[in-house]
Amino acid sequence: MAETSYLLELSDYQNKNSKININSNEGMLTNYSFIHIIHILYTYFVLINNNNNNIYSVYDVVEQVILSLLDCSRKREAGELIDLLKLKFGKDSVRVQRLQAMLYECQNVYSRANEIYSNILEKYPADMLSMKRQIAILKSNGNYSQAITLLNTFLQIFMGDFEAWLELASLHIRLLSYRNAAFCYEELILIQPINHVLYSKYADIIYSIGGADNYIVALKYYTHSLELNISNEPNNSYPPTNLSSIYGIIMSMYAYCNSSGGSLAKLNEHQIELYNWAQNELKQITSKYSPTKLPLVTAFINSTNIKQQD
């Protein structure tokens, strides 16, 4: 009986806070109701463990709860749950060992965590998660160049790992090596060719490298991103989500006209047409969704006007 009452309480919390997206990684630390949920789950699992139930599938959830506890820096509760798992599955279980190592990471004892990961990798060289944790340790210690080296080794084995490429790109951007980051995004586009966000981010990176040719490349990628997600249709119930590509089209053409290799005369009529379309679209979206911003957006459009330049 007690078990179901906990679950009921949990669903109650979920209903009350329907706005909270548990899958989102953002804002976890500060979301008090989220911590409540975790706390209820924690109490629930201590309880079923005491009742000696043999439902193995719940241990998947226990693992998730431990990870969430670590995210919220609740070391004591996480440690207790890990001890329960150790009793259940023994100390040699790789999955439990990994959780123990993550607890060490949470306590800032990186050397011991690293030791555990190295031992696991000696036994099972293809253990992807342990290797990723090692990269994370390097990153949190500030050894970015070493993290990049290890991530490159990782990617030679697991070439199709989306998150790893994303991480490598963000490390390169951090060190301001945009060309390498652009390469990572090319790989990402190959993995997910219809993800519009990747095209727009790739364009951002190419634009940041600069130069007349790159502005035109950026323009093409922004346009393709919009082609995949225009999201501003009259009967849409949600606001457009790809504003950055519209801004990007205007910015890249403005930058092209102001760069040494490019000028307004070198743009063809279709590009001018696209530029006008982007300006109108921006005005329309602003007056529909955020009318108070209209003076600011109009000022933006006026100051990036390419036609007054020459």
Binding site: D204, Y207, S208, G210, Y247, G248, M251, T304
Partner: peptide
């Protein structure tokens, strides 16, 4: 933080 959107923000 990449250049294009930063510029857009600053102009506004």
């Amino acid at each position: 933080t990449l250049l294009p959107m930063f510029e857009v923000a600053l102009i506004q």
